[in-house]
Design a protein around this nucleic acid. Structure first.
Lengths: 135, 135
DNA sequence: GTTCATGCAAATTGTTTGCACTAAT
DNA sequence: ATTAGTGCAAACAATTTGCATGAAC
């Protein structure tokens, strides 16, 4: 499933550059949901010339191409993930900041029904549960 | 239900100023979901000395007091609504930008179950359906 | 050889803050 | 009188952009 970054880039038709490979590799290997600055920090270890501007430009290209997803959580900057997994939503642990992914076909179905009743088709949606560990 | 802005302010224990009354009145009467700049524009017609800084400060106070809700949609700045209606979520029309409110107890119930399974209590959540009118 | 991507620094946008002043209590 | 709230301008953080250089095709 997790294919080579260079190949993924080639598949989208954009130019394969050192910088893009570094960024995509780092994002593919990330277990968490890093923001642009953090991706910059990590990818710099693979290509120390990489600038933050390029990180933003690349993320924006890859988002347009459907390769990465941008999460806009409540506070702070955007966070990113590779779009290789099936669609899912997020639980944010308010204390640790940890993000857990989940998926509910039942909820998605209900969402579709609600939208349809109002004459809408859902293009995409976002759902985040801001939680605290049960005591 | 929609009580007098001055009273609402008094109830929260903060000082009742011309500026706050103007802002809260404008927000209470808003049918849409304005952002800070738009609220500033509208409230200025009631109090032309009102500054944008005060708009932000007041919104932040009122959010802390539970009188207003801040929506952080996908793009652009935050949008606001008074917290007088029961909890609901939003459908965003991608073409017109129009925001429709909806509510699904079924979905909320499922959300709680999902969170509980992972050992979490939901503190709050957000769900937005980005839609296009059915053709 | 063209065209696209990059680095850098400067610009933008949305929001926050320090400070001296004014108004609500 | 005391304390909280305000306007203004400057400070900020996240992100974007113009431009000259450099690398991918």
């Amino acid at each position: 499933m997790k294919q080579d970054p260079a190949q993924a880039l080639r598949d989208t038709g954009v130019r394969v550059t050192r910088q893009r490979e570094a960024l995509l590799k780092v994002l593919t290997e990330a277990e968490d949901h890093p923001d642009a600055a953090e991706l910059h920090r990590r990818a710099r270890t693979l290509d120390d010339s990489l600038s933050l501007a390029t990180v933003y430009r690349t993320l924006s290209v890859l988002e347009r191409e459907g390769v990465v997803l941008r999460l806009a959580l409540e506070n702070g900057g955007a966070r990113y993930e590779v779009a290789d997994a099936p669609h899912h939503d997020h639980i944010v642990d308010l204390d640790s900041g940890q993000i857990t992914e989940f998926r509910s076909e039942k909820i998605e179905q209900l969402q579709r029904e609600i939208a349809a009743e109002l004459g809408y088709d859902i293009v995409h949606h976002r759902m985040e549960l801001y939680c605290r560990k049960k005591t």
